[in-house]
């Protein structure tokens, strides 16, 4: 396959998975107005749940680990939301914006060190979905990676349907647009907060579980995807669901084409993350609402 086309394919395959994780982050932001700085750790925990499950019950179908990891992350998220974030929305916390940043940042520190203390530093990898690679028009893609991408795509489609067509999706959208008006029609925004946070970090957990056979897990694997997700949601417009999908694909392409075409190959990988960060800083400065965001900074 043509060099450009094969880089594009690589970028899009990864971009879909990036989008899934960023979508969770943007969902949380649109409902709770909170940036979850522990998002990467929920991704990491998803990977560890999958690893723990599949290494304990070796006969288990690896696909089963995905919903379990997602549910575990979501449950943990619900507990975190009830314990630490709900008081904020009940007016019990002064200066909630600052509090939200710090509390999620503190949680990320806590989870990372907890996993390090429990599982140790060695990288682990759960069982493959399918071993080997698949040939796509002459270009080979790892079977696990392609599987992760397809699952992410299906999940993204399902989520779009849920958000646009179901009662719960409408309620969520109502809260994200106008809390007071939503309350008038009988939507309990506190419950919507819990649901959105659980769903958002559950998606991070799923992303962690689907990617674990490809990238392996270690206590600090959450950092890179977390920073990438911030870039994506800023690029797409904070709180915008189509924005996060488009942003995810864009960042997938930028990383892939950037490394593929950067003039000095010796530095191409070192600066791969910088490409994203620079775009991010520029978007924040010059077009803070990103692709689809609402006008506010």
């Amino acid at each position: 396959m043509d060099y450009f086309l094969s880089l594009t394919t690589t970028g899009l395959v990864m971009g879909i998975i990036y989008a899934l994780m960023a979508l969770g982050l943007t969902l949380i932001f649109s409902i709770l107005s909170v940036i979850n700085f522990a998002h990467g750790e929920f991704y990491m925990l998803g990977g560890y749940v999958s690893y723990f499950l599949l290494s304990t019950f070796t006969k288990l179908n690896p696909f089963l680990a995905i919903p379990v990891a997602g549910l575990a992350a979501a449950l943990l998220g619900i507990v975190v939301e009830r314990l630490f974030l709900r008081p904020m929305h009940q007016g019990q916390i002064e200066r909630p914006d600052e509090y939200a940043i710090l509390i999620t940042f503190g949680l990320s520190f806590f989870f990372q060190n907890l996993v390090l203390a429990v599982f140790g530093p060695y990288p682990h990898r759960p069982t493959s979905f399918f071993s080997g690679a698949v040939s796509l028009g002459g270009m080979r893609i790892g079977a696990d990676r392609l599987t992760a991408s397809v699952i992410s795509l299906l999940l993204l489609a399902t989520l779009l349907v849920v958000i646009n067509r179901t009662w719960i999706g409408k309620a969520l959208r109502a809260v994200s647009q106008d809390k007071d008006a939503a309350a008038v029609v009988g939507i309990n925004s506190l419950w919507m907060n819990t649901i959105a946070f659980g769903l958002g970090v559950g998606l991070a957990g799923v992303a962690g579980a689907v990617l674990a056979p490809t990238f392996s897990v270690a206590p600090d694997v959450g950092a890179v995807p977390a920073i990438r997700s911030y870039i994506i949601i800023v690029l797409g417009g904070m709180g915008s669901i189509p924005g996060s999908i488009l942003g995810g694909l864009t960042i997938g392409l930028v990383e892939s084409l950037g490394a593929g075409y950067f003039p000095d190959p010796s530095r191409a990988l070192t600066y791969k993350t910088v490409f994203g960060l620079v775009i991010f800083a520029l978007v924040l400065l010059f077009r803070p609402r990103g692709f689809f965001g609402r006008e506010e900074t």
Partner: peptide
Amino acid sequence: TEDFTPILQR
């Protein structure tokens, strides 16, 4: 680094 694939393609 998570993904070396682009540079490996190069």
